[in-house]
Design a protein around this nucleic acid. Structure first.
Length: 954
RNA sequence: GGGCGCGUAGCUCAGCGGGAGAGCACCUCGUUGACAUCGAGGGGGUCACAGGUUCGAUCCCUGUCGCGCCCA
């Protein structure tokens, strides 16, 4: 029994349990041992996360694909899990400690802090998994993984060690993006360039050997900078080699103001004569471009900041080297000043000495940390790097060769663009939460990288014994006693970038580095579904790691979807307050409605604009489906075993079989091409505008009529088509369809595991032509017969039902236009009807009368006088309404139609009389135009006839 | 500055070489037993602009304007 009202919350809770209990989504179900696998790995949400609309879209699309392929018989593995999200999680826990006024991270110390994080993870880390379940995600939940699981951690260590051994991971001292708030290095990708209004300061650097005179430009050179405070670390001034203004100064020196350091004037292409003064200060330790200039010219790198981006001058050897007497005073005065305070102080001092020429307003891009929001400081430190350039080569080749394809294809260009300009990937983070780098250092700083601590210690002690730094006896003691080696051998404190472990996700989740059956069966995966924002963070890196370690690209297709925005097209953000909470709309309208709304909007080249109202609309669609199924139930439309829709005898039933087959093809083909919106919209139309609006309406007289073959066939067909609808809709709206599947008949199994009606391989056009004949060749191989229902067509049925639909629509339309009250039943006269119409009309008498609100239907040679005359498929259908119709309105209506027919004839004539058109256009187009002309001429004749009748009646 | 994408009904979008479409919104009418979370009907568009290619352009090409995003 179907409940009277559709109540999604109730259904969704129940269905979740049924799926879970039956382990419907488990990969490797025994009966599918021989089936082809289909694998998707979920983009692991942050363990700190909660479901937002982006997740809802991303996972809805993945679920549609998984359910679709599961129904097509594949052995589906949708691999779920979460990401430890280094920085984000550490921040969450630190904030919690602060709120609870508990000891902070540093007070706790590393071990106890990590314990706290794990504890937090155990308590609150599973939130998003449950939210994904509410969305209906059909992951194999028994296989849930976490990037810091024992197994995945082993994969991380193994990858690190191997890449290190191969020279693809190395330690280097270079500039990094330093976050002075979080006190860690971050990768280029975690930096956001934000345009800010600032200033361009023009500073005078006095030339060596001349007495500085603010009024004499010959005594100084002007440099322009956006960061005057870094001048303390300047080690050169650069001018463009082609800049004649400065040619005579190249090779000379300036004395750095305030500091007194003697630095050279060098010629380098980097200096742009058009910008600023054409001369730039060079600070290799605090600017990426300057760093490169410094390398080219072998300049000293003078770092003047500490970790917190405050000036660190006292005791700074690099800074103090070669400075004159008295330099200490300035160092002491400025030491410890924050970079922004330092800027003010330095500018003031320069100004006092006439060293500031002018200040210009200047808008420029300033790097910010994407997590902390702090202004990023280029900072000179030792960090670990991955040689991304080398790893990128196979990753580029895989996409070039088509081994991996992006959908839509244009993303490949973005991918290439980045991959071909890729920079070394900084993977070390000065955090605690994450995979600690498997590197150990000896007293001289020598690095020992190994998969286990024992191995590393063993190597290290062996090395130092050999070097006679320690005795073999000491070595043995240190190997056995952790305390004895403390301080002698120390582990690298840093952890790896979170994306390092995510890069391994497609194979680490399957058990690699162990040789598991899962790796064998489910790698490489089939499709990766993700947003464009993590192509670089994640997709590119999975490609690199997958190809390097597995020798195969991790997925054959990368489907990139767009963003979900609010109804006005604005990005959803907490600060704007325009966030739509997916769980909120699920509460209000159901997960199915949200999923269907997202799927219907998921076009390739547009962001999705979503509003609660849109979800409501799709809930209404679910209600419509619900009620259609109730209607079927009330009319005893039960599943009839062995029923073959292609053998139906009733025209109406053949028609819906034809339409169902068409919908099946449309949905299948659209999903095969990741056109989620086309697939979902095809179903929306089919269910509402075909099945409900016409099929069920036209079937009503039969269903409520007398017992007989026609009625039983119709009952069976209503049920069959409903079942097909439930199947086709299941990937989009799993809950309601599974519920309706369960309650409408005794079923062998779950809808989630029921077979899709169209097989994976498309038929050739020749095969299709064969299938469309009404009498299939008895010699056809059985596999073709399996396609029959989905390939079925019946043009004759379509023509007949089309006529009924057109007739009813035309009558309804004119009745509404003429304001004929619904209660008024009018007679219908088919004037000069063709043999076909004479046959059809009695067959559809009941339906047409009911739907068009007619008293009766009769035939006549010509339309009765004083009737409304409609043109339906070239024949006149007349409504004799003497006394009711407004003659002038009717004349106007017919005139309008006449004008339309005339316009059509004229346009076609223009074409056909154009010799070039007839000569150049394809034959079928010319033929089509001729047919159009004939039809329009015939139509015109009928309209003229109708006008004549009208005139006679006046 | 480089790249990608988008300008089609009031809104959101589909169509991407041969007669302008859908959903929502709007207006009119309607509770006859699946459904008012509904049904029937209707109005509404120089397909941004300008050139070009073509027998034919909303669709292809070029340019202009406007909007969005990514990378420097």
């Amino acid at each position: 029994m179907i409940e009277k009202n559709y109540q999604p919350a109730d259904i969704e809770a129940r269905m979740s349990l049924i799926w879970e209990d039956s382990r419907a989504f488990s990969a490797g179900r025994p009966e599918r041992r021989d089936a082809k696998p289909f694998t998707i790995v979920i983009p692991p949400p942050n363990v700190t996360g909660s479901l937002h609309m982006g997740h809802a879209l991303n996972n809805t699309l993945q679920d549609i694909l998984c359910r679709f392929e599961r129904m097509r018989g594949r052995d589906v593995l949708w691999q779920p899990g979460t990401d430890h999200a280094g920085i984000a999680t550490q921040m969450v826990v630190e904030r919690q400690l602060l709120e609870r006024q508990q000891p902070g991270r540093r007070e706790l110390g590393r071990a106890r802090f990590l314990e706290r994080v794990w504890q937090w993870k155990a308590e609150s880390g599973g939130v998003i998994i449950n939210q994904l379940k509410r969305l209906g995600a059909s992951c194999d939940w028994s296989r849930e993984r976490f990037t810091m699981d024992e197994g995945l951690s082993r994969a991380v260590v193994k990858v690190f060690v191997e890449l290190h051994r191969q020279g693809l991971i190395y330690k280097d001292k270079r500039l990094v993006n330093w976050d002075p708030k979080l006190l860690t290095a971050i990768s280029d990708l975690e930096v956001q360039q934000i345009e800010l209004r600032g200033s361009l300061w023009y500073l005078r650097y006095p030339l060596e050997g001349k007495t500085f005179n603010p009024d004499d430009p010959a005594t100084f050179i002007v440099v322009a900078t956006t960061r005057p405070e870094t001048m303390l670390g300047d080690s050169a001034v650069a001018v463009n080699p082609d800049d004649e203004r400065y040619a005579h100064l190249v090779g000379k020196h300036v004395i750095l103001p305030l500091v007194g350091r003697r630095i050279p004037i060098i010629a380098d292409q980097y200096s742009d004569p058009e910008k600023g003064s054409g001369a730039v200060k060079v600070t290799p330790a605090h600017d990426f471009n300057d760093f490169e200039v410094g390398r080219r010219h072998n300049l000293p790198q003078i770092s003047v900041f500490n970790q917190e981006a405050a000036l660190a001058l006292v005791g700074n050897e690099d800074y103090l080297r070669g400075l004159p007497e008295g330099a200490m005073q300035l160092a002491e005065e400025l030491h410890g000043a924050d970079r922004f305070a330092a800027r003010k102080q330095i500018v003031t001092r320069l100004e006092d000495f006439g060293l500031l020429e002018r200040i210009e307003p200047n808008t420029h891009m300033v790097p910010h940390g994407d997590r902390s929001g702090a202004v990023i400081e280029p900072y000179l430190t030792d960090q670990w790097y991955v040689d991304a350039k080398t790893l990128a080569q196979p990753a580029v080749a895989a996409v070039r060769s088509g081994a991996t394809t992006f959908v839509p294809k244009n993303w490949e260009k973005t991918y290439f663009e980045w991959m071909e300009n890729i920079q070394p990937w900084c993977i070390s983070r000065q955090l605690w939460w994450g995979h600690q780098i498997p590197a150990w250092y000896g007293p001289d700083g020598k690095v020992f990288v190994a998969e286990t601590e024992e191995e590393a210690i063993g190597n290290a002690l062996g090395y130092y014994v050999e070097q006679e730094v320690i005795t073999p006896e000491q070595g043995r003691e240190m190997a056995l006693d952790r305390n004895k080696r403390a301080g002698f051998i120390t582990r690298d404190e840093d952890v790896l970038d979170t994306w390092f472990s995510s890069a391994l996700w497609p194979f680490s989740t399957l058990g690699w580095p162990d040789e598991t059956p899962e790796v064998e069966r489910y790698y490489p995966t089939n499709v990766l579904v993700t947003g464009w924002d993590i192509i670089f963070f994640w997709v590119a890196r999975m490609m690199m790691m997958g190809l390097h370690f597995m020798k195969q690209a991790p997925f054959s297709t990368v489907y990139i979807h767009r963003l979900v925005r609010d109804e006005k097209g604005a990005k959803m953000s907490k600060s704007k307050g325009n966030v739509i909470d997916p769980l909120g709309v699920i509460d209000d309208f159901g997960a199915d409605a949200l999923r269907f709304a997202l799927a219907r909007g998921a076009a390739h080249s547009h962001d999705i604009k979503l509003s609660p109202q849109l979800v409501e609309t799709n809930r209404n669609f679910a209600t419509k489906l619900w009620n259609a199924c109730r209607f079927a139930e009330m009319n005893a439309c039960g599943v009839s075993t062995g029923f073959d829709p292609t053998k139906a005898r009733q025209t109406l039933n053949r028609w819906i079989a034809h339409e169902t087959a068409r919908a099946t093809r449309e949905v299948t083909e659209a999903l095969e091409e990741y056109r989620f919106n086309d697939a979902a919209n095809a179903m929306y139309r089919f269910v509402w505008n075909v099945y409900c609006d016409w099929y069920l309406e036209l079937a009503k007289p039969v269903l409520t009529g007398e017992e007989g073959d026609a009625r039983s066939e119709t009952r069976a067909m209503v049920a069959w088509a409903r079942d097909e609808i439930l199947k086709l809709l299941h990937p989009f709206m799993p809950f309601i369809t599974e519920e309706l599947w369960t309650v409408t008949a005794r079923r062998d199994g779950l809808l989630a595991l029921a077979p899709w009606s169209r097989k994976a391989s498309a038929l050739t056009p020749e095969q299709l032509a064969l299938m469309s004949t009404n009498s299939p060749d008895p010699l056809l191989p059985p596999i073709w017969l399996a396609f029959e229902a989905a390939e079925f067509t019946d043009e004759a049925a379509e023509a007949e039902i089309g006529w009924v639909v057109d007739l009813v629509t035309a009558i309804r339309s004119v009745r509404a236009e003429m304001n004929i009250p619904p209660a008024t039943l009018t007679p219908l006269v088919l004037a000069g009807a063709s043999a076909e119409a004479r046959e059809r009309a009695p067959r559809w008498n009941d339906v047409i009368r009911r739907m068009a609100r007619l008293a009766d239907i009769s035939f006549a040679d010509r339309a009765p006088e004083g009737s409304l005359q409609l043109l339906v498929r070239g024949e006149i259908a007349a409504l004799p309404l003497k006394g009711v119709i407004d003659f002038s309105a009717e004349k106007a209506r017919l005139d309008k139609e006449l004008a339309k027919a005339d316009a059509d004839i004229k346009r076609v004539d223009a074409k056909l009389s154009n010799e070039k058109f007839v000569a150049n256009a394809p034959d079928e187009i010319v033929e089509e135009e001729k047919e159009k002309r004939e039809a329009a001429v015939a139509r015109k004749a009928k309209i003229l006839e109708a006008l004549q009748r009208l005139k006679n009646a006046e």
